[in-house]
């Protein structure tokens, strides 16, 4: 297959990833010839070739890892930290178009780059007594979506009680319809509470605290 990342884009990504600190692992789940599975696999492999700190591991839905990371859609992938620990950072569907930005941010953040959250964020999440899932529905043509995805992922990296997942709405119409998505970014917290648009981290925290 032809390369997804042309020379210019590859160079930009390589430069961007050069300050990565720790090793990370991408665990990709695919199933047969599912929509965008091949492209997602190829994207992850091409990006991993641009940094020696990125390893890609491929699994299927029957693997114990799929259960461990609660994977039900394909393609999906999670990003593990340098100790191989899942910190709740998940992508469902290919992070192409504008979403390449939330993907690259997540790689940097997971490798130990400081994303500048105030310490009070973790303190507020410490009050959680159960796990909270944050879904961020996106389209690849949405310029306001990557910051919303990054916020969800950074909250997940800040606290073990939070899981953040990007869901590419066109690839997964069923779950998009289930949550009645026809405008993005649409943020669903714990399956019930909704935020629309690129929201400050405070808006996420208020919704999460309302659930606690």
């Amino acid at each position: 297959m032809e390369k997804l990342l042309n020379e210019d884009v590859s160079k930009q990504i390589k430069d961007y990833l050069s300050p990565m600190k720790n090793n990370i692992t991408l665990v990709l789940f695919t199933e047969g010839d599912c929509q965008t599975c091949k492209e997602t696999q190829q994207l992850l492999l091409e990006v991993s070739q641009l940094s020696d700190k990125i390893t890609v591991v491929e699994k299927d839905l029957k693997s114990p890892e799929a259960k461990e990371y609660d994977i039900s859609l394909t393609p999906s992938f999670v990003i593990l930290n340098d100790e191989g620990v899942y910190q709740g950072v998940k992508f469902n569907g290919i992070p192409a178009g504008h979403e390449i930005n939330s993907f690259l941010s997540a790689l940097m953040d997971m490798s130990g780059h400081d994303f500048g959250f105030d310490p009070s964020v973790k303190a507020r999440l410490d009050k959680l007594t159960r796990k909270i899932n944050i879904k961020v529905f996106v389209t690849l043509s949405c310029p306001h979506c990557p910051p919303a995805v990054s916020n969800a992922h950074r909250l997940a990296m800040s606290h073990p009680m939070i899981e953040g997942e990007m869901i590419e709405a066109q690839t997964f119409p069923e779950i998009s319809n289930q949550f009645n998505v026809s405008g993005v970014p649409k943020i669903i917290i714990d399956g019930t509470r909704e935020l629309v648009g690129n929201q400050p981290i405070e808006a996420f925290l208020k919704e999460i605290e309302a659930l606690a």
Binding site: C142, S182, P185
Partner: peptide
């Protein structure tokens, strides 16, 4: 009907239609 039909961002939401 905001975001369930009504949209303010064509580039973001056109694919839903």
């Amino acid at each position: 009907y905001a975001n369930i039909g009504v949209s303010y961002c064509t580039t973001c939401d056109a694919p839903f239609f």
